[in-house]
Design a protein around this nucleic acid. Sequence first.
DNA 1: TCCTGACTGGAACGATCTATCCAGAACATA
DNA 2: TATGTTCTGGATAGATCGTTCCAGTCAGGA
Lengths: 201, 201
Amino acid sequence: MVKDGATAEGTRDRLVRVTADLLQRQGYEATGVKEILAAAGATSSSLYHHFPGGKEDLAREALAYGAEQFAGLLRGALARADTPETAVAACALDLAEDLAASGWSDGCPVAVTALESVAGSPQLREASARLFEQWQEIIADRLRALDVPAAVAGELASTVLCALEGAELLSRVTADPAPLRTAARHLSTLVEVSRSPARGR
Amino acid sequence: MVKDGATAEGTRDRLVRVTADLLQRQGYEATGVKEILAAAGATSSSLYHHFPGGKEDLAREALAYGAEQFAGLLRGALARADTPETAVAACALDLAEDLAASGWSDGCPVAVTALESVAGSPQLREASARLFEQWQEIIADRLRALDVPAAVAGELASTVLCALEGAELLSRVTADPAPLRTAARHLSTLVEVSRSPARGR
DNA sequence: TCCTGACTGGAACGATCTATCCAGAACATA
DNA sequence: TATGTTCTGGATAGATCGTTCCAGTCAGGA
């Protein structure tokens, strides 16, 4: 086995990384095994050696890989701000920036595949569901750390993630950062109102 | 031509209806022409007679058909409530109900195909973008009719639609109505705060 | 009745899909 | 170097993909 993973990227890692990229842009159904192999510079025998379950098996790992990148983006945005209002806005604004920079192609690395999986693959669907929950927990944790009452942080994180996913979808399809930018402001407002117990939820 | 469209459904209409259904559940890439033909009880010659552009042509019309159904759902929910806060909540709750009733399969009729189209079909992508804008306009119109300041109604409708789409995605993938239900409450709060100019946005 | 256009049945096309096969290369350990 | 494991090259299978083609059915107008 290759131990120095920092320098030499093995075939297996290359397959995962390339697949994550393709799944993010095109989704599971539109991404062919042949396309993956060409992009990774690998052959089918390598793929089925490292991933006996085939395309679906590889996709599951690629989703997790992409999700970790996305989690890093969220953590970075959340950590940069020192109030819960600016923290959630930073997430949306960072997303808008990355999305625009990639020509509206690199959005949420899971969304397309997750939606397709509902009808196509229980395995990928469950995996996607877990990843969404992880992201929500990341947001909720940061909100709690910034003095948002624990009782509302969880549900607030849910809606923040929903709005991020939805706005990212709209921005991506319309090739317009406005939905994400508008959501950033509205999420700030929502958090501001929700953290003061005086107004209730 | 068949004039009494109420009773006898022509092959063309059947193709559109069945395709809209399949696109809603599985998206564009996972839906095969053969599958459409089997479900509609038609042959390929009929399809390519009515839709010279083939699958993509048919999908475009099917999206518009599904979008009109969805617009009807939105209009119904928005009309039932007599305040902007309850109106947006009704949209989310109706969505949650329909989604759960269908076994988490019948969500937004455009979302899956729209996301896939970003990488696959400029034609379907543009069509999807227009449909999203129509829905946003429906929400904005109703908000304005319920005394939400015109200046904020448009942007508010944007975030409402984003949250609906995102929450519907989350609910669908996790097979849990919670994201939509939570979004309903939060959207109510957001509208309540945003309509009173005192708090600004 | 004949003609014309709209529409359909069904076979067939080439291309592409995912997955499998086996021989051989590359590798680590001894 | 010998040996066993891990990994890869390349050809191939069988199925399915979207699409095309042509002969044929059907309705309405002259």
